[in-house]
C-alpha cells in the first residue's frame, strides 16, 4: 500500500512538472473561462433574473431564496472542475498510451498501470483544487459566496474531478484514436454541464427527466458545493451526495485499473 501511494505520487510529480512548463494555456482555460461565465451569467444574467422576480417572487423561491449569483457560483465551480478533469483524462491519456507512449515508459519502471491511472486521477483533483480556489476567491469578491463554509466546496469540486476523471480516463484508454473524444465532450460533458443543477435547479427540468440528475456526478457535486457556499444543507444530503460521488469513483477505479493494465501491461 505504501508502494502504491508513493507510486501515485511519482506520477503526480510528473504531471506537475509538465504543468509547470506549460501552465499558461491550462490556466487560461480552467480559470479565466469560468470567471467569464461568472461575470456574464452570475452578474449580467443574474441581475436580470433577480430584477424580474422582484427579489422575493416565484423565481427567487425556485432558487431556494438565493440571488442568482450565489446560486450559479457553486454550479460553475464544480462544472469547471468537471471540464478540467475531462480534459485531463482524454487527450493526455491518448498521448500517454499512443502518441508519445509516455505511459509505457512509466510501466517499464517500478511503477505499474494502477499508479499511472491513480496519478492521473489525483492530478485531476489537484487541478480542480487549484483553479477552484482562485475561482472561489473571485466569486467571493463579486459577492457570490455568502457562507464562511465556502472553502469546503473545494472538496466537492475535487471529488467531482476525481470521479469524472476515473470514468473518462477509463473510456479514453480503451480507444485507439481521439476521434470519439470530441463526441464525448459534446454529448456527454456539455449536457451534464448544462443540466446538472449548475445554471438552474433540476426541479426546472421536465418531470420525466429530473430523476436522471442522480446519475450525473456533477449534480451531486453541485448540491454539495452549493451547501457549502450558502451554508444551507442537511447532514443526510451531505452523506448521500458524498456517497454517490464515491460510488462513481469506485466504479471508475474498478473498471479503469483493469483497462489500464490490459492496455499497458500485456
Amino acid at each position: 500500500m505504501t508502494a502504491t501511494r508513493s507510486g501515485v505520487l511519482r506520477v503526480v510529480e510528473r504531471e506537475a512538472q509538465i504543468f509547470k512548463s506549460l501552465w499558461r494555456g491550462p490556466v487560461i482555460l480552467s480559470f479565466i473561462t469560468p470567471v467569464m461565465f461568472l461575470a456574464g451569467m452570475g452578474v449580467g444574467l443574474g441581475g436580470m433574473v433577480d430584477d424580474g422576480t422582484g427579489g422575493s417572487g416565484a423565481g427567487a423561491s425556485d432558487l431556494g431564496g438565493l440571488d442568482y449569483l450565489s446560486f450559479v457560483t457553486p454550479g460553475l465551480l464544480v462544472a469547471s472542475a468537471m471540464q478540467v478533469a475531462a480534459g485531463e483524462s482524454l487527450w493526455p491519456v491518448m498521448a500517454g498510451k499512443k502518441w508519445m507512449r509516455t505511459y509505457h515508459a512509466m510501466v517499464a519502471t517500478p511503477l505499474d498501470a494502477r499508479h499511472v491511472f491513480g496519478g492521473l486521477i489525483v492530478w485531476s483533483g489537484v487541478r480542480a483544487a487549484m483553479s477552484g480556489a482562485a475561482f472561489l476567491l473571485v466569486a467571493a469578491i463579486l459577492g457570490g459566496v455568502p457562507s464562511p463554509w465556502a472553502p469546503l466546496a473545494l472538496l466537492a469540486s475535487v471529488g467531482c474531478a476525481m470521479a469524472v476523471s476515473s470514468l473518462v480516463a477509463t473510456f479514453a484508454v480503451g480507444q485507439e484514436s481521439d476521434q470519439s473524444f470530441a463526441v464525448l465532450m459534446r454529448i456527454g460533458i456539455i449536457p451534464l454541464f448544462l443540466f446538472s443543477g449548475t445554471f438552474f435547479p433540476v426541479e426546472q427540468l421536465p418531470d420525466a427527466v429530473e430523476p436522471f440528475a442522480a446519475v450525473s456526478p456533477l449534480w451531486h457535486a453541485a448540491e454539495l458545493a452549493r451547501g457549502a457556499t450558502t451554508g444551507h444543507i442537511e447532514a443526510l444530503e451531505v452523506l448521500l451526495h458524498s456517497l454517490a460521488l464515491v460510488g462513481f469513483f469506485v466504479v471508475g477505479w474498478w473498471w479503469g485499473t483493469r483497462r489500464f493494465t490490459r492496455e499497458l501491461q500485456t
Binding site: R10, E13, Q17, I18, S21, M100, R101, H104, A105, A108
Partner: peptide
C-alpha cells in the same frame, strides 16, 4: 529499458526528463 519507440516527455527539457524518470525509481 530502452524501448523500440522513444517515449520521452517531448514537451519537457532534457534535464527534466532525467529528473522525472529518476523519481519513478524513488
Amino acid at each position: 529499458v530502452v524501448p523500440q519507440e522513444d517515449n520521452l516527455d517531448t514537451e519537457l527539457t532534457v534535464w527534466d526528463n532525467l529528473l522525472i524518470y529518476g523519481r519513478y525509481f524513488d
